[in-house]
């Protein structure tokens, strides 16, 4: 079994926040669940380390893109659930379209032939 860590990638500035917002799009989640979700969805390539996840959550909360509330989880555990706010939703859609643009632009530079078709 290969060590997943070696294949993991660093987050670009601001991408972690975008992923967090995307993760919350389908309903509230707590911090650990957010980290798990990101890891699973990226097939273990991306790992939101607690060391960067929690400061990111604090930042988003201060910017009022998400709200947080202490609630009981399904298995009766006190957890802090994060929810997307209207502002967060708007921010997510704008960052996603910017991201698409960014990826396309990178792609154009890396593979000029394909883009000229």
């Amino acid at each position: 079994m290969r060590d997943p860590k070696s294949e993991r990638m660093e987050f670009l500035q601001g991408t972690l926040e975008m992923l967090v917002l995307r993760t919350l799009l389908f309903g509230p989640k707590h911090g650990y669940a957010i980290a798990q979700f990101i890891r699973q969805m990226s097939n273990d390539v991306l790992s939101a380390e607690a060391g960067s996840l929690y400061p990111a959550l604090q930042r988003l909360e201060l910017q009022k893109l998400i709200t947080a509330k202490w609630e009981m989880s399904d298995n009766n555990r006190r957890v802090r659930h994060y929810r997307l706010t209207a502002a967060g939703r708007a921010k997510l859609s704008s960052s996603m379209s910017r991201w698409d643009e960014f990826v396309r632009a990178i792609g154009n530079v890396l593979n000029p032939a394909e883009s000229q078709e």
Binding site: H30, G31, Y32, Y54
Partner: peptide, 11 residues
Amino acid sequence: LDEELRSHVEL
């Protein structure tokens, strides 16, 4: 924040 981090460890 401390409590949240503790719950993270437990989970």
